[in-house]
Lab assay of single mutants.
Amino acid sequence: MDTYKLILNGKTLKGETTTEAVDAATAEKVFKHAANEHGVHGHWTYDPETKTFTVTE
């Protein structure tokens, strides 16, 4: 398992979190669910070198 990071750049919610996942696709599902639960919808990017997802509203 690897550690993946999410950076939230929402209009009303900003922050960072991490998750352990077997691959980037699994981490993305976890992060998108969490972002949706917090009402953050926007443009997603992924940097494979740093294993970091970013969502920007």
Rank of each mutant, 00 (worst) to 15 (best):
T18K: 08
L8F: 12
T17G: 07
E49K: 11
T19C: 12
H33G: 09
A35M: 11
H33R: 12
V22G: 09
G10K: 04
E37C: 11
H41K: 10
T17A: 14
Y46W: 04
W44P: 00
K29Q: 13
D2H: 14
L6T: 02
L8D: 02
K32I: 11
T26P: 01
D23P: 00
P48H: 09
K5E: 03
W44F: 04
Y46T: 00
K51G: 03
T18C: 10
G15M: 15
Y4S: 01
D47Q: 06
M1W: 12
T12K: 09
T45F: 10
E57C: 06
T17E: 12
A34W: 15
P48G: 06
K5C: 06
H43K: 12
P48Y: 07
L13H: 15
H38I: 14
H43C: 11
K29W: 09
D2I: 13
T12F: 15
D23A: 03
T54H: 06
E49A: 13
G15I: 15
E16Y: 12
L8P: 01
G10C: 10
G42P: 01
H38N: 10
V30W: 11
K5L: 07
E16T: 10
L13P: 04
T18R: 07
L8H: 03
K11H: 14
G39V: 05
A24H: 09
K11M: 14
L8Q: 02
A24G: 04
P48A: 13
Y4P: 01
E49Q: 11
G15N: 09
T18P: 02
E28V: 05
N9R: 09
G15V: 15
A25R: 09
D47G: 02
T19H: 08
E57D: 07
T18L: 09
E37N: 10
T54I: 07
F53V: 00
T52Y: 03
K11R: 11
F31C: 02
K14I: 12
Y4G: 01
F53W: 05
T3L: 11
N36A: 15
A21E: 04
A27P: 00
T52I: 07
V55S: 01
E28D: 04
T3P: 04
V55C: 06
A25D: 10
T18M: 09
Y4C: 02
E20Q: 14
T19E: 04
G10M: 14
T19W: 07
T19M: 11
E20K: 13
H33E: 14
E28T: 03
E20V: 14
A24D: 04
F31E: 00
K29I: 13
H43P: 05
T3H: 06
V40C: 04
E37Y: 10
K5D: 02
G42L: 03
K32S: 05
H33P: 03
P48L: 06
A24W: 13
A35P: 01
N36Q: 14
I7T: 04
A27S: 02
A21R: 02
T52G: 01
G10A: 06
W44Q: 00
L6K: 00
L8S: 03
K5N: 05
G39W: 05
K32Q: 11
F53T: 00
D47F: 05
D47P: 00
K14E: 06
H43N: 12
K11V: 15
A34I: 15
T50Y: 06
E49H: 12
E20F: 12
K5S: 06
I7S: 03
A25E: 13
T50C: 05
V55T: 02
G10T: 13
A25C: 11
A34M: 15
W44T: 01
T12A: 10
Y4M: 01
L8W: 14
A24M: 12
E16R: 05
V30D: 05
M1L: 14
D47I: 05
V40N: 03
A35H: 03
K51A: 03
P48C: 06
H33F: 10
E16Q: 08
E37M: 14
F53I: 01
K51R: 13
V30G: 04
E49D: 14
T3Q: 08
K14Q: 13
D47T: 06
D23L: 03
Y46V: 01
N9D: 12
Y46F: 07
V40I: 14
K5V: 10
L8T: 05
Y46Q: 00
G10V: 08
E28P: 00
I7G: 01
A27T: 00
D2T: 14
D47R: 03
V30N: 07
A25Y: 10
L6A: 03
E16M: 06
T26G: 09
K32C: 07
H38E: 09
N36P: 03
T50P: 02
K11P: 11
V40K: 03
G42N: 02
T52M: 03
T19G: 03
G39I: 08
T3I: 13
T45V: 09
A34E: 10
N9Y: 09
K29N: 09
V40R: 02
M1A: 08
V22Q: 12
